[in-house]
């Protein structure tokens, strides 16, 4: 339909005010419906999570185990080497930030996998739920899962090792935003691959992010890598976050430049992920894999 201003110009008797009011009401109604659908999906995933204590426990279990292990490693090395003693918990910080990246992507992908495991995907795809609404619901769930997993572990880190991640202040917000954006971009792409290839692509959800661990220099500076691999590392947004974290904890300097570069790369990655998802969805519609999401 033509915009109200154009219709008023073409047809002088056209009641522009009424038309604009109608358009606004329609837009508001669409917006409200969209929110209802997003809340329906968040409710759907919350029902699953609340109904299974092993799933809830698993959210805390691995981050807690990792944090304890790296915390003790940090304590041991700190006792032996002066530099690490000054490094102010880089291992624990790296572990917590790594979990934001890894669990952020996993939290997104698991919500999507729930649909394929329960053979419910076709029900959703024939409903009025838009792909972007499903993605927003999965992002919200990713945040909820992260909060359940990371907040208690960050408190344990403070109690056991005296490491207060919240002491990073505004920098933590920048780190978090960049890491979660990377996690979601990868999660969106993995979901597209599962749509296109069925549960045969499920292992991607669990493993793809581990490729980032050596390349994004989670526990060591980029300078450690061979020169050619450093080029690859600097193409990944998390590399900037982990370098930024070390700059903050070791040099007590917040590198805003690194965060801006990471954000720019994340935008590119996010657009690439969304475009990849759309293309894989189209391919799945062409190839008929949406009704067969098994192996």
């Amino acid at each position: 339909m033509l915009p109200a201003a154009v219709r008023a110009y073409v047809n002088p008797s056209f009641d522009r005010e009424t038309a604009m009011r109608d358009s606004m009401q329609t837009a508001l109604s669409d917006y409200t419906d969209s929110l209802r659908r997003i809340s329906a999906m968040v409710g759907r995933y919350s029902y699953v999570m609340r109904g299974s204590w092993p799933r809830l426990a698993e959210l805390v279990y691995w981050p807690a185990v990792n944090m304890l292990m790296w915390g003790f490693v940090q304590t041991y090395i700190g006792q032996k080497a002066g530099y690490f003693a000054q490094a102010g918990g880089t291992f624990i910080g790296a572990m917590l930030l790594w979990d934001i990246l890894f669990r952020g992507q996993l939290g997104f992908s698991i919500s999507f996998l729930e649909e394929t495991w329960s053979r419910n995907l076709a029900n959703l795809l024939i409903s009025p739920l838009r792909p972007v609404e499903l993605a927003i619901a999965m992002m919200i769930m990713s945040l909820i899962r992260l909060a359940i997993g990371i907040v208690p572990v960050s408190i344990v880190a403070n109690v056991f090792f005296g490491f207060n991640v919240y002491g990073m202040g505004i920098a933590l917000a920048a780190f978090f935003m960049n890491l979660i954006l990377t996690g979601w971009a990868v999660g969106i792409l993995v979901s597209g691959a599962i749509l296109r290839n069925g549960l045969g692509a499920e292992s991607l959800a669990w493993t793809v992010m581990t490729l980032f661990m050596p390349l994004a220099c989670v526990f060591y500076p980029v300078a450690v890598l061979p020169a050619w691999l450093q080029i690859v590392a600097w193409m990944l947004p998390p590399t900037y976050v982990f370098e930024g974290m070390r700059a903050l904890l070791i040099d007590h300097q917040f590198r805003a430049d690194l965060m801006i570069e990471a954000f720019a790369l994340n935008l590119v990655l996010f657009i690439a992920g969304a475009t990849g998802f759309a293309k894989l969805m189209d391919a799945a519609r062409r190839n008929g894999t949406l009704l067969q999401t098994g192996e």
Partner: peptide
């Protein structure tokens, strides 16, 4: 304004019947 039934697709098994109907009711507004 459409809907579909097939034995080849399921509703989420862990959700109760009421929860499933609530979810789909909200999806269809």
């Amino acid at each position: 304004h459409m809907n579909f039934v097939s034995p080849y697709i399921d509703l989420p098994m862990r959700l109760t019947v009421r929860q499933n109907l609530m979810v789909f009711g909200r999806l269809y507004c």
